[in-house]
Design a protein around this nucleic acid. Sequence first.
RNA 1: GCCCGGGUGGUGGAAUUGGUAGACACGCAGGACUUAAAAUCCUGUGGAUAGUAAUAUCUGUACGGGUUCAAGUCCCGUCCUGGGUACCA
Length: 986
Amino acid sequence: MADYSKEEIKNIEQKWRNEWEKRAVYKVTNDTSMPKYYVLDMFPYPSGAGLHVGHPLGYIASDIVARFKRIKGFNVLHPMGFDAFGLPAEQYALEHGIHPAISTQDNINNFKRQLGKIGFCYDWSREVQTCNPAYYKWTQWIFLQIFDSWFNRKKEKAERISELIKIFEKEGTASHPIQNSKFRILNFSAAEWIAFDEKSKQEILMQYRLAYLAYTDVNWCEALGTVLANDEVINGVSYRGGFPVVKKQMRQWSLRITEYADRLLKGLDEIDFSESMKDIQRNWIGKSVGAEIKFSILNSQFSILVFTTRPDTIFGVDFMVIAPEHELVKQITNDAQREDIEKYLKYVESRSEIDRMAEVKKITGAFTGAFATNPFNGIQIPIWISEYVLAGYGTGAIMAVPCGDERDHKFAKHFKLPITNIIGSHYNGVEANPTKEAILENSGFLNGMVMRDAIDVAIQKLEEKGIGKRQVNYKMRDAGWSRQRYWGEPFPVVFKDDMPHAMKESELPLELPPSDNFKPSGNGEGPLANLTDWINFAPNEKRDSNTMPTHAGAAWYFLRYMDPHNTTAFADPKALDYWNQVDVYIGGAEHAVAHLLYARLWTKVLHDLGYLKFDEPFKKLINQGKITGDSRFVYRLLKKSHYFGAPQSSSKKLIDSEKFPPVFISKDIFERIEKGTATDEDKGLIVNIGNKLSEKLRSENEFGNVEYLPENAQPLHIDVNIVNGLELDTAAFKKWKPDFANAEFIYEDGKYICGSAIEKMSKSYFNVVSPDEIINNYGADTLRMYEMFLGPLEASKPWSTQGIDGVFKFLRKVWNLIHDQAGNLKVNEAEPSREELKVLHKTIKKVEQDIENFSFNTSVSEFMICVNELGSLKCNKRAIVEPLVVALSPFAPHIAEELWEKLGHNESILAATFPKYDDQYLVESTFSYPISINGKVRAQMEFALDMPKEEIEKIVLASEIVHKWTEGRPPKKMIVVPGRIVNVVL
RNA sequence: GCCCGGGUGGUGGAAUUGGUAGACACGCAGGACUUAAAAUCCUGUGGAUAGUAAUAUCUGUACGGGUUCAAGUCCCGUCCUGGGUACCA
């Protein structure tokens, strides 16, 4: 072989993929004598579309880290698997009649084929698939552990339900009161507990279980016939399909993640996630600290509890607002207002989630006729209801302070309610001011205090008077865990007397029953409800017709990789202990709230129950940016006349579209038309082409005129692969679709220029670039390095093939460093020069630091600089080339392996050791100091690096440069920063 | 609206965290090899002005101010843009 040619690359890469498999070099053992390193990718959902160039970005990065850590001497766990349950496979089944199990396996095989070509060092023997019964047996098992747990608030950790029963038997609910005020049984004594019947006991325990069944408001999507999680609803419509979503009460499984809100929040301080990721999670958890305050209702036995973060504003309360769904609404409404309230409640009920979303700014509400008393100043304030107060947050009731809260202010203005000013000039009468810095006025005992400080004082007073207390609230809700779907994990429970009972471990997995009916039953039950024999499998015993969400399988898969074939436990404790936390987790930021929170939750529960020694799963998280597509458009003119034949003829016929060619105008012409600045020349071109085509038709004995409407061009997405930059390859375009075979173009400067846009990669935009194409042209090594070279890993960027040649050329230069033109090895054994060693060690140091910092784009640059410099030094010495090849191997494993073999090694390069750098080759003996005079750099002077400040000062003072600028006088000031710059001020 | 990011040549992006901005690569221009093209190699390449030239000077990191001997980097304000979130009291 003579060259690193495109044909040769294919052979080399194929050869090494075969070798790696044959030698099983990626097989990882749980060898606890070695230091471990766990690099994890977010496992993909195997969609039917296959991989595009965006998917491997994170995988390449993690693969580089894995290979790097391996040659650094770590035992590296770097597995891959598939998040294989999910809605798309089920919808595909509905549309095409192919069973999800089959389409999923096909897709997985395709993914594995594509991934295999990129040269990843996954240990496929550890592959997991969430839809595999041997896997989901343990998903179900962990679910049952959660079901069998409750959160002990005193200890802030999960415990077994059996512990709770013991507590109830001893002291009832004394130290662990029932939290749910709507539950029919309230707090009870030990004796009462013992007296409850079995069903009541189970119902009570259900109020505590971390996985529990309850009637909850769920997002019901009629069109999909299923319930959606909050994160699957976007702006009131479904995430997939964009169908309307309404609230509906259903008996659902939920995970009591809210109990862990505080620990999930605190845990963020200990883990290395990007600040923006932490912010997203913090916002999602939405902790707010404030107070709960009780307002008694005039002439009534009832009182209203409100939550506020601003108890300092209590003297500014002008009215109260409670949620329309609040339980007190009916009871406090007086007769005079009843009609108004009923009308308003009807209105609220009629409003769908989308209406509410769309009309956030609309102010609505109704007066109940009731009044509450301000506990501090005794003033009576009206109680209103309005949908801007949410039943689900806080207590579902607020105290309204219009001078300080924008919504309260608007409400007050709208209904002409009085506004008390407690912040003096900070309130201008037009807009509320939510400041905390104002000095309080009209505020009783808080007068004269800064609001910020008054918060604590007010809370203290509330607690003293027994009318309120400090309170923390979270935005986060419990996680709905039931899905009305077929393709998911069945719930491993049996209903007896309407209460769920855990199945025994020996009965797991509860396998998904075979079915070819995936239609939801439509009444809120899932497709499994169609299998009545399976649901009612025994007398008086029923199964759950729902399945778990895809988050279930993904909430713990990183643990299964540690010991994937274990049949007696989800993983061996020794393996769990050894591999421990994931050292680096790489994936997209779109999983910020759902997947990552659930994975953290499951880990914490398993930790509390004693199965894990760590309670955060991911030590470090890297979010790779999205690679977007760069779409191309052509602009098609619309036709005016569709007919041929004599113009006045009554028997007009449609002209054959073949004889009526599509006409496309170049981008600038289109833009001028759009803006209404089309020139006469532009219009002339369009008329001319119509005339030309008409003439052609007439010459073929057809009649009629062909005209195109210049004001009416339509952009069309076209395949990005038939465009060169922005210039359309018209020949390829004509071949692309039969309809365009006889297309005509209106050029500008002889070229057809396409429009462009950055959009997500999608088949329907024809902007998808498959890694297969790139690998065919350049090989996997070039693809890998190029994807890293595109820019910072975490930045989103559009895909562009511009520049890939540079990376390819680089690899060829590496090749040529070691081969002469005839393709023979030209490495020699001579001692390297100091200069050569400097180039090498500088590179090693930089690359090592860059990999540790996940800054792969700069390490690729560093390699390029190194090879350029070695090239100009004509260096082909083994002592330089060999370490370079090893350092390069994480990035371009195939070529590195090939060169390694040629250099005479018979073990895989993975067995090599990452070279160490030696500072002695990096130290500069002199340093070039820029001399700046009055802030302008005027000269460079060389000094020994270790020269003392004073010496430098003397030399600079004596130098011609300074004399020239000071005309011999000594400067006013001189600053010497060792190793940096000398500044002289005149 | 609120909470985070980010605005650097024709392009993707560097800049040791306050120290000669534009590394590396693409593109472009010129040159070498070639009958020619492709490929390859070499040279130049932020802008402006002056000079035959090497070069010199000025200007320059979205915009306007500020701190500093020194600002892409820090502070204040404005504009644009990407993401998260949305009546959360």
